[in-house]
Structure formats: structure tokens, C-alpha cells
Amino acid sequence: MNSYHLDHLQYLEAEAIHVMREVAAEFDRPALLFSGGKDSICLLRLAEKAFRPSDIPMPFLNVDTGHHFPELNEFRDRRAQQLGAKLIVRKVEDAISKGIAIPSPGEISRNRLQIPTLLAAIEEFRFDCCIGGARRDEEKARAKERFFSFRDGFGQWDPKNQRPEIWNLYNARVNPGENMRVFPLSNWTEMDVWEYIRKENLEVPMIYFSHRRKCVRRHGQWLPVNDLVPPRNGERVEELVVRVRTIGDIISTGMVESRADSVDDIIAEIAAARVTERGSRADDKAGDAAMEDRKKAGYF
């Protein structure tokens, strides 16, 4: 292999930076969705690489379900401040009290309610583009997703009628009221994300590393015990050495038993893993088309 050759991480980085700069050049009011999770942490480094020495030319946006891990929100706020970026947080709680998001009777999960909250934020700030950290390898409906994913005036995704995406020529044209979701990490895998975190020496929230936590066994996974997830009758609380592999809400994210306490350990663990990262998310197990249905409605 000669020196004029990119390895896999350099290739993926080049592709993602190109996508980021297309967004900055083609849209009037873009935003970057930043949750503090591992994928969006990579997005921030890519944004730095795409735009420095200038400021990152877009605010960060996060939809707070009210069920976030507190460690994640702390990290999110600190990282945005370090980068000198404007962070906009919109809460599902507020969307419910304003009647924008309407819970069904007995609905505890905030997963579905994120969608109207996000769409209301897009409308409020008139964002014409949101960059997200979703990856095609996460889930099979996502495998059909474009880099530039068009959403109509209702925020809907129409999977059967997507714009063809050819070469690296992204069609970024939208009419007023329509918007685009852009996914620079489309071609990254979970392994690529961690290898990039290692290569760039990126800080990640501590809950990705092994720690002691009280858990209960429910629906075949270990859920973290907290105010929102109290132990039920007959459930035994166990203190385990665990970490999170993927971060969703605190009420649905399964903890995995792990002694991985460095990025190297995590990479070794993923290499040996026999389940996908989404295997620990109850929200994706709701049915064969759970993700497709949420995406059609405006989920990112």
C-alpha cells in the first residue's frame, strides 16, 4: 500500500467531512443534533475538522426526553461549552404541557413523544437541515436511508420514494417548510465509531465504561434501577458490574455486564460480541418495522 492511500477510518472521515461542508454551504439554517452519545461525539470532531479555524457554523440541538441518563446531559452541556457552540435543548415535558406532544393513556416511554418535540423545534427555529449521527448498520430500516434524507412539510420520510443518491453529488434542494436530515456517519459501523474515538482520543461519558450499578432483570435485559425504574414486586435488585453499549432512555436501555474500562477494552469486547448494539434497546424490539414506522413519522 503506497502513501497515497486512505485506510478505512481516513476514508470514512473524508466522506463525512465532505457531507458536513455540503450542509454548511447549501443550507441557510442547519443544526447539528447532539445528544452526548458516542456517535454524536464523533460528529462534533468531524465538524471541527470540517470547519476549523472557523466556528462550527451551526447550533447544536438536543431533544431532552426527561428520561436521559444524568451523566449524559452533564457531558452534553460541558462539551458544547468547550467548543463554544450554542446548545438548544427542547424538552418533551414542555411539549406535553403545551399540547404539542400528547401521550397515550398509560404511555410511559418518551420515545414516540420525541418526534413532535423535534418537529416543533425545527419549526420554531426554521431549521432547514438537521445533521444526525444515525448509521445504516444500526437497524435494517436505517440501511435504506440516504446521506441526505428528504422530509416533507410534515417531517415525514417516504422510504419508497427517496431521491436517488449518486456519486458524492448530494441534492440538497428543499422548498420552504421542507427539511433535510443528513447523516454523515451513514457508512460507519459501531466498530468504526470506537476506533475513531480511540484514534482521535475523544472523551465519552463514563457510563460507556464498566461501573457498579443496581439493576433488575426485566424482559430479558438488565435495567438500571432509578426513580423512573423502581423494582417491581418479586424483582430482585442486584448490584452488577455493567456498562451501556448504546444509550437510549434510562427506562429502556439495557445494561450489559462488562469489565471494559478503557476504549481498548470496548473495542475488544465489540470484536467478540455476538449481539448487535441495538439488541439492548427495547424500543427497537417492538416489532419488525418499529424503526421504519418511527422514521416515517419524523424520527431521526
Partner: peptide
């Protein structure tokens, strides 16, 4: 119906 992207190593 649509192009699906898959990843393996």
C-alpha cells in the same frame, strides 16, 4: 425495493 447498504469486515 430500495438500495440497502450492509457492512461487514
Amino acid at each position: 425495493i430500495d438500495v440497502a447498504y450492509r457492512y461487514f469486515a
